[in-house]
Simulated scan of single mutants.
Amino acid sequence: MHALTVTPGRSGSLAVAEVPDPQPAEHELLVEGLALGVCGTDKEIAAGDYGWAPPGRDRLVLGHESLGRVRHAPDGSDFTEGDLVVGVVRRPDPEPCGACAHGEFDMCRNGRYTERGIKEVDGYGSTLWTVEQDYAVRLDPGLHRTGVLLEPTSVVAKAWDEVWRVGKRAWFEPRRALVTGAGPIGLLAALLGVQRGLDVHVLDRVTDGPKPDLVRRLGATYHAEDTAEVTKKLQPDVVIEATGAGSVVFDAITGTAPYGIVCLTGVSSTGRPLRIDAGTVNRDLVLENSVVLGSVNANLRHYRAAADALAKADPSWLEDLITRRVPLDRATDAFDAREDDVKVVVMLED
């Protein structure tokens, strides 16, 4: 079979290669790969900045944003041939910490987890792949074109879940949410915010291309002004931060309404000093009972919530979020950014 592979730590090693067909273990599904989403993590691995090959191997099959169709399921399985499925990314560590032992492997305390297509386990970027039944999520058949968005949606499903858990420490009826960044994570965060009945606003730098229209079609409001101006005007109850830009992060933190909650999902670059008034930030957080939290990855609960959210979404909106589809034999083209890219997907089927 063909697979998108890379040698972690070596820039320029990304290539489509012939690899042996996978052999499913007793409790695994054999899945025909349909599509693979490409995100910033994949690009970092391809650039040699990140990633770990399976033990004893030099190359890693890339890809953690999966979509496939079950070709074979074990006898007695809850899955059947033809089911549309996505594989979960993370696996608990071999000697589970308390969080992993309770199914909260997205909150692993000791860092010994593995991740498909990222850390020590082959990913889903191949024409065939296997996945343990317990780490497969069935999708609505109507998502056969867009179900590849499930993994990034699971990330924001977790972010919203965390926000609600924090908010429920006291009376909590948020009205207005601001999402900073209109990439795939930001747009999907906006989708889930709208589905929660909030007045959603999205902030990004661009003023043309597909992003403003995607936001408006959700019934949300698009902004391209300075972050501090937008937060001062809106005073959002909730901020989902999806840029990782240091100045945007701190403008968001200091611009919420009292009892505001800011959830950081964007990973910042290092080496960019930023001068802030730490005393004022601390004072505002304390006196207004505000919260800042970080959120990454997702567990099975979040994947299932994400599957429900995508099933309820406008199919044409999801379709338009995917702005470019690239065949597997030209998969490396998916790693070259274009001006109007939102979500780029590698098509694994013929």
Rank of each mutant, 00 (worst) to 15 (best):
S11A: 14
G12S: 06
G12R: 09
V16K: 04
V16M: 02
V16R: 02
A17S: 14
V19K: 11
D21K: 15
D21E: 15
E32T: 10
L36A: 11
G37C: 00
V38P: 07
C39T: 05
C39V: 04
C39E: 00
T41H: 12
W52M: 13
P54S: 12
P55D: 12
G56I: 08
L60Q: 02
L62P: 01
R69Y: 02
D75F: 11
S77R: 05
D78T: 13
D78V: 15
V86Q: 08
G87M: 03
P94N: 04
E95F: 09
P96R: 03
P96I: 07
P96E: 01
C97S: 11
E104P: 04
I118E: 08
K119Q: 12
E120W: 14
D122E: 03
V131D: 02
E132F: 02
D134K: 01
Y135L: 10
Y135G: 02
A136L: 08
L143D: 01
H144R: 14
T153N: 14
W160H: 13
W164T: 11
R165H: 05
R165T: 03
K168I: 03
A170S: 08
A170D: 00
A170Q: 02
A170G: 04
W171V: 07
F172Y: 06
R175H: 06
L187M: 04
L192A: 06
L192F: 04
G197V: 08
L198K: 06
V200D: 06
H201A: 10
L203C: 10
V206G: 11
K211N: 14
K211E: 14
D213Q: 10
V215A: 14
L218W: 08
L218M: 01
Y222F: 12
H223Y: 08
A224C: 12
E225G: 15
D226F: 04
T227S: 12
A228R: 12
A228P: 05
A228S: 09
T231N: 05
K232R: 15
K233V: 00
K233Q: 13
L234H: 03
L234F: 03
P236D: 09
D237L: 10
I240L: 14
G244F: 05
S247K: 07
V248R: 10
T254V: 12
G255R: 04
P258L: 10
Y259H: 15
G266N: 01
V267Y: 07
G271A: 09
R272P: 01
P273Q: 05
P273T: 06
I276F: 08
A278M: 13
A278P: 04
N282P: 07
V286N: 10
V286F: 04
S290A: 13
S290W: 02
S290C: 03
L293C: 15
N299D: 07
Y303T: 01
R304M: 06
A305I: 09
A307W: 03
A307K: 03
A307N: 05
A309V: 01
P315A: 06
L318N: 02
L318Q: 03
D320T: 04
L321G: 00
D333L: 09
A337L: 13
R338Q: 15
D341L: 07
V342H: 15
V345H: 11
V346W: 07
V346G: 10
V346N: 11
M347V: 15
E349W: 10
E349F: 12
D350L: 03
